[in-house]
């Protein structure tokens, strides 16, 4: 896809995120928005997947280790055609299949996740299985930067590095904010790059909102042999919604009706600018 198309799609994903969280009256918009461009790139360009055949045997796998940002994943899946975009506002409602955290029974979701630190281990298992049987699919997992405080992340990293799982790509959404404040103040996991390097990862640092950099990083990851890759993407929490940007208050809070209107107006404006840019 052309970058402009990706940007437009990512903007639709962001609208989906805000709409889902508003519909749920709960959920995590901040980290969903910071990763929206990455979700978009994964599901619209990078990954070998088929919305008509979500269980396709050799599809690439994705595990959202930072499962609380399910609205971002769901919005990408819906826009990609795995399920109707109109279902997004049913998020977290009793009876809806769109559970608060990713559930393996949802079309396009490869693993239940949300208890932080656990998703990366499952992704490692998927990558290991491919290695054991000579299968060609790749496995992707996305972690929050605060999530790096979980010890299990490093157990998984140690194993992946030891086993040289070069079919595994770990993405860290480094928006620098967790519930209690900046990650550097709560219990700093910095330097993130040095830590993954120490566990035998190839580390790539990118701007999370630059599709050229995202594309180049995945190409480099695919070409990297003999070790897993970690893409640390420097992102803006709440990206795209003026009052949510870089504001920790919007980690896990839903906008009220007025705030929702402002958020959607922000995104509509971005959409109009992208349309103009295309002319």
């Amino acid at each position: 896809m052309k970058n402009l198309e990706l940007q437009k799609t990512a903007n639709e994903v962001r609208k989906g995120i805000v709409t889902a969280v508003h519909g749920a009256n709960a959920g995590h918009p901040g980290g969903s928005l910071s990763a929206a461009d990455m979700f978009t790139f994964l599901y619209f360009e990078e990954m070998n997947i088929d919305p008509q055949n979500p269980q396709m045997e050799e599809r690439d796998r994705f595990v959202l280790s930072k499962g609380h940002t399910a609205p971002g994943l769901y919005a990408a899946l819906a826009n990609r055609g795995f399920f109707p975009v109109e279902d997004l506002p049913t998020l977290r409602h009793l009876g809806s299949y769109l559970q608060g955290h990713p559930c393996i029974h949802i079309a396009g979701v490869d693993m239940s996740s949300g208890s932080l630190g656990q998703g990366i281990s499952a992704a490692v298992g998927m990558a290991l299985a491919a290695k054991l049987d000579g299968r060609t699919y790749r496995t992707y997992t996305m972690l929050g930067d605060g999530e790096l405080e979980e010890g299990q992340v490093w157990e998984a990293a140690m194993f992946a590095g030891h086993r040289k799982l070069d079919n595994l790509c770990v993405i860290v959404d480094n928006n620098n904010l967790q519930i209690d404040g900046p990650i550097s103040e709560v219990c700093s996991p910095y330097p993130i790059d040095k830590k993954f390097e120490a566990f035998n990862f190839h580390v790539i640092q990118i701007d999370a909102h630059d599709f050229d950099q995202i594309r180049a990083a995945f190409k480099e990851a695919r070409e990297t042999k003999g070790c897993p890759t970690c893409i640390i993407m420097h992102s803006l929490k709440g990206k795209g919604v003026s009052f949510m940007e870089n504001n920790v208050d919007w980690h896990g809070k839903a906008p009220n009706d007025e705030e929702y209107a402002v958020a959607m107006a922000d995104l509509e404006k971005i959409g109009e600018e992208l349309e103009k840019a295309g002319e």
Binding site: S121, V124, L132
Partner: peptide, 28 residues
């Protein structure tokens, strides 16, 4: 030996790896 995976002293990760293996068809 090729079907035995030593995860080291890290049981939580081992269970997670098993989940991933099972999700793609293995019986761990």
């Amino acid at each position: 030996p090729e079907r035995h995976i030593d995860c080291g002293i890290a049981e939580c990760n081992m269970v997670g790896i098993a989940a991933g293996l099972a999700a793609v068809g293995k019986i761990p």
